[in-house]
Simulated assay, not measured.
Amino acid sequence: MIFVTVGTQRFQFNRLFKELDRLIKSGEISEEVVAQTGYTDYQPEQYQGESMVSPEKMDEFIDKSTLVITHAGTSSIIKCLKQDKKVVVVPRVAKYGEHVDDHQLEIAELFAGQNLIEPVYDIKDLKEKINAVKGKSYSSYKFDNTKLIGSIDDYLTSLSRSL
């Protein structure tokens, strides 16, 4: 199963969902596709789509999936990487009315530069990237929170000194 998630941003992502329908209809994608469609105004024809799913259902879909297609939201990407899934990232782009700016392009480049995800910068490349991700090895995601813990410790230490 391919799971698609686009987060909870209040923007449409018709470009992605239309391309998925086209690929399924043409037989280029034969796997089952399940999508969390968010606020898109396009209704999938060839696959199951729900606007929002519970966190538990999200985890279940990710767990069952062979790969995940997601927007370039850091939470969505990291959630999938923590579950050791191969991730295809389609950044939302401002010129298509999918977000207010193009920061998701930068996020996708950052994760791709660390060999963690497969980015899709042109929606016409989606099928090629789905095929590529299946045979490619990616780096393991490791969350290093030592700086965060150090900052919290320093802050708490400074508070205790001022008491």
Results as ranks from 00 to 15, higher is better:
I107N: 02
Q36D: 11
T74V: 15
K147A: 05
Y42A: 01
D84S: 14
K136V: 05
V6T: 14
I24K: 08
F3G: 00
N131F: 03
K18C: 02
A72I: 03
T146P: 00
K127F: 04
D63G: 09
P55A: 15
Y42H: 04
F11P: 08
D101R: 13
T74D: 00
Q48M: 02
E50S: 08
K86H: 00
T8S: 15
C80Q: 03
V93C: 03
R161P: 09
V68K: 08
R161T: 13
T66I: 04
G7T: 11
G150I: 05
V88D: 01
L148D: 05
Y121M: 14
L116Q: 02
I77W: 00
K86Y: 07
I149G: 00
E32A: 10
F143V: 12
N115R: 11
R10P: 04
Q43K: 14
S51L: 01
R92T: 07
I149F: 14
Q83H: 13
V89L: 00
L156M: 15
F13K: 00
I24E: 01
E106R: 01
E28L: 07
S30A: 13
T157P: 08
K147F: 09
E98K: 06
L116Y: 08
A94Q: 14
F143H: 13
D122M: 02
F3C: 03
Q104K: 12
K85R: 12
E45F: 07
N131M: 09
D125G: 04
E98G: 06
L159T: 01
L156Q: 11
K134Q: 11
A132E: 14
T74E: 10
Q114A: 14
S76H: 03
A112G: 10
M1K: 12
G135Q: 03
F61E: 12
K142L: 09
K142N: 13
T5G: 10
T8D: 09
H103Y: 08
V68T: 11
G7Q: 10
M52Y: 11
D101A: 09
S30F: 04
E128G: 06
Q114S: 10
R15T: 03
M52R: 06
P55N: 15
D63H: 14
T146N: 12
L105M: 12
S160F: 13
V53C: 06
N145E: 14
K64Y: 04
D41S: 10
K85W: 06
D125I: 07
Y138C: 02
S26E: 12
E19M: 01
A94D: 05
Y121D: 04
K82N: 12
T70M: 02
L105H: 15
T146H: 12
A72G: 07
D21I: 02
S139P: 04
S26T: 10
K95M: 07
T70E: 00
E31Y: 04
N14I: 04
F17M: 01
Q48A: 11
I78P: 06
I69T: 11
K124N: 13
L156V: 15
Q12H: 11
K124M: 07
I78N: 07
L20E: 00
K85P: 13
L148W: 10
L159S: 08
